[in-house]
Design a protein around this nucleic acid. Sequence first.
DNA 1: GATCCGTGTCGGGCTGGCTGCTGATCCTGG
DNA 2: CCAGGATCAGCAGCCAGCCCGACACGGATC
Lengths: 246, 246
Amino acid sequence: MVGATRGFSRTASTPTTGSPGAVTTIGSGAQDSTTLLEVMRGLSGSSAESIDRGKTIFFPGDPAERVYLLRRGAVRLSRVYESGEEITVALLRENSLFGVLSLLTGQRSDRFYHAIAFTRVELITAPATSLRTAIEQDASVGLLLLQGLSSRILQTETMIETLTHRDMSSRLVSFLLVLCRDFGLPGAEGITIDLRLSHQAIAEAIGSTRVTITRLLGDLRQEGLLQIDRKKITVFDPIALAKRFS
Amino acid sequence: MVGATRGFSRTASTPTTGSPGAVTTIGSGAQDSTTLLEVMRGLSGSSAESIDRGKTIFFPGDPAERVYLLRRGAVRLSRVYESGEEITVALLRENSLFGVLSLLTGQRSDRFYHAIAFTRVELITAPATSLRTAIEQDASVGLLLLQGLSSRILQTETMIETLTHRDMSSRLVSFLLVLCRDFGLPGAEGITIDLRLSHQAIAEAIGSTRVTITRLLGDLRQEGLLQIDRKKITVFDPIALAKRFS
DNA sequence: GATCCGTGTCGGGCTGGCTGCTGATCCTGG
DNA sequence: CCAGGATCAGCAGCCAGCCCGACACGGATC
C-alpha cells in the first residue's frame, strides 16, 4: 500500500471561466449538491479528473493547496501509522467535499490523511485560493459549502456512534446501516450496498480483523438478514437488521 | 439522566443591533474565534447564557432553530438509546460552534443529539435564520463559520482515530492525548486536563466500562505517567505517554 | 498455468466486560 | 455545621468474545 501509484487522468480543464455561475436557490434542500458542482466547475483553475480504483488522490505530507468535490464513486480517507497499519477515518460518498481543511488556516499546510479511490472515481478539483475568493465574492457559495461541511460532520459523527459500540457484532451491524444510508441502492430484494467491499476493508474501517468480519458476516447471512454476491452486500431488511443489536 | 432539567439563566439579550460588526482580517489564523464571537453577539435575537454543570442545553427531539457558540467551559454531545445507554459523540471545547446542522437543510428539523453542560458553561446563542442572513450579507462571516466547522471536523476525526484502536489501553491513552490538546493547561509538573472527569464519563466517551477505566488509569498512574487529584488528571509527559501505545 | 487475493475454518490464549461489594468523596438540606 | 444520601473509585473472580496464527480452497488476473 505504500507503493501505491498516483493515477490521474486529467480529462478536462476549464481555465478561468470568470463568471461563478449565479447560484439562485438557497436551502431548497434537494438541489444543493448540483449547484455546488456548478460552483466548483466555474472556479478558475478547476479541472475534472477521473481516477482508477485503488489509486491515490493525495498522500499524507503532500501540500494541501486544492480542494476536491467527489462527483462519482467513493473515496477512502485513512490515517497511516509507522507500524504500517492503516485505519479508515471516513468513506466519502458522492457529492462530498474533501481536502477542505486548507481553508482552515489560510496558510500553507500539509495533508495528513491518505486519500485513495475506493472505486473508480470522478472528481472536480480546484485551488483552495480560487474557492476562497469565490466565497468572498458570493456569499451564497459560502452557504453551499457550509451545508456540505455540515453533512460531512453528520456523517463523521454517525461513524463515531458506530465505533463506540463495544461488541463487534453491533459495530458491524451499525456500519452496514451507515453504508446502506450512504451507498445503498434500493432493489427488489432489499438495499444493495454499491461498493465492492472486502472483509479486510470492513475490518480496517471498524477496527477489527478480517477473520472476525468473516465470521460475523457468515452469522448474519445464516440468519437470513443479508446476502453477498460478488463482494456486493444486499441487506434484505434494514429495520430487522437494526434490531439485531446485541 | 432522563430526569435532567433544563438550566437556563439568560443574562443578556441584545435585540437587533443591526450592524453585524464589520469583520476585517480573514484567515489571520489567531483571532478567528474572537471575531466569530463578535459576529454571534451582533446577530439579531442573540443572547448570552450561562448553564450549570450537568444541565441540559437541548434534548433530542427539540426543534433545531438556534445555533450556539461555546464561550467558556465544555459541552458534551451524546446520543441516547432506548436501552438507556448514552454514548458521547463529541466533547466540545471553548470557541466551538454547535447546533449548526439547522443550517444544513434550511427547513425545520429536530435535534437528535443530547447536549449537556459538562462543566459550568457560558455560551452565545442566536436564531439560525439570523446567522443565515448574516452570511448572505457578509461573505466573511461565511468564511469564519467554515473555519469553525473545519476545526470541528478535525476534532471529530481525531476521535475516530482514537476509537479504532483495538485495545482499550491504546484507546485510553489516545483519548487522554486528545483531551490534553483540547483542554490542557500547561503547568509546572506537566499538562493538566481542565475537566473533572469521572471514570464513568471516560468510559462513555471511548466505549468501555467504568471498571476497565479504573484499572487502566491505575496502571498508568503506577507507571508514573500521570497523576489524578480531585478528578483532575495531570499528564507529566505527553511524549512519554504517546510511546505507551501497545 | 502460475500467482495472488479474498474467503472460510479451527483452536489456543488473553484481554476486557460483568457482577458484587466496600470504602472514599462530594453534594445537599436540615 | 453536620448528617445523610448519592455518586465515584477500587478490587476480585468468572467467563466469553475476539485476536492471533495457520491452513485450505476458489476465483480472478496476467
